[in-house]
């Protein structure tokens, strides 16, 4: 009886915390100034929020079949969220969809401003290797 009450309280706290973090992520999505900043809000606090909600759900359900599925949901979120954020961020950066005036330093612009020789060398190497990450459409 007592144990269930404590577990219920913990599960409730997890669910509430997760919901609040997701709300904050949504607010950040609206309030942050440009695409790259918004990607931070869109992808990160809600990862922890989702993990908390999964934890809360796992405590309430407490059956092996459900918990294994919840673990998988969490793992896939952890694996895919950075990839999604990276794809959007990279596209946004290359399309110039961000406010340059908000950047204190931009070392990627410095690197891309270099003479074409190293970039071509990288492209050639990237083409020979399958799944080369640097396929520069310039």
């Amino acid at each position: 009886m007592n144990v269930t009450a404590v577990l219920d309280a913990v599960a409730g706290a997890c669910l509430l915390g997760g919901a609040l973090l997701s709300l904050a992520a949504g607010v950040g999505l609206l309030r942050f100034p440009d695409l790259l900043s918004r990607m931070h809000a869109a992808t990160k606090p809600q990862v922890l929020g989702l993990l908390l909600i999964l934890a809360g759900t796992a405590i309430r359900l407490a059956t092996v079949v459900d918990i294994t599925t919840l673990v998988l949901v969490g793992v896939f979120q952890l694996v895919t969220a950075p990839v999604a954020a990276h794809m959007v961020g990279r596209t946004g950066y290359r399309a110039g969809l961000f406010r340059r005036d908000l950047l204190l330093v931009d070392e990627l612009a410095d690197a891309r401003g270099r003479p074409a020789a190293p970039a071509q060398e990288v492209r050639a190497r990237g083409a020979s290797a399958p799944g080369g990450s640097r396929t520069d459409p310039e």
Binding site: H40, T43, H86, V122
Partner: peptide
Amino acid sequence: VSLVPGSLIVDMDRAE
């Protein structure tokens, strides 16, 4: 790095 909020990978140079 990108899971920790506050940082986002914009690009990477695999060869370097």
